[in-house]
Amino acid sequence: MRSFQRRLGDFKSRGVQVAAIGVDPTEISRGHAKKMGYTFPLLSDSDAAVIRRYDVLHRAAGPKGNDIARPAEFYIDASGTVRWVNLTDNIAVRARPEQALAAIDVSAGSNSSQ
């Protein structure tokens, strides 16, 4: 998420918003956003309902054996259609902003050619 914050300008210039979703309560997210300098929304899905709906739940993987989200990244276009998905098979390996930006550019290119 640090790297996405660093490249936030490149998302903004493409008219694309960035948002993170996790189970952390609002207060924790607020503190963390402040500490890390995150200026995009950190959405609090405390009962993991949305995480479940996206099937990105990692059961009992939290610090107290609670259910959390597994790392996953999506690009959803203006019509609400998924255009890019990144489901890592290694918790340490996350999508880089460059991958998302490339997917956005490919999606924009295919839209304008239609």
Binding site: M1, F4, F11, R14, G15, V16, Q17, V18, A19, A20, I21, G22, V23, D24, I28, H32, P41, I51, Y54, V56, H58, A61, G62, P63, I68, A69, R70, P71, A72, E73, F74, Y75, I76, D77, A78, S79, G80, R83, I91, A95, A100, I104, S107, A108
Partner: peptide
Amino acid sequence: LADLLSPNGAVLIFYRGHW
């Protein structure tokens, strides 16, 4: 989600959380 989609969509990052 609808608020996030204009004008050109959104990148959603699901993350494990901070502890």
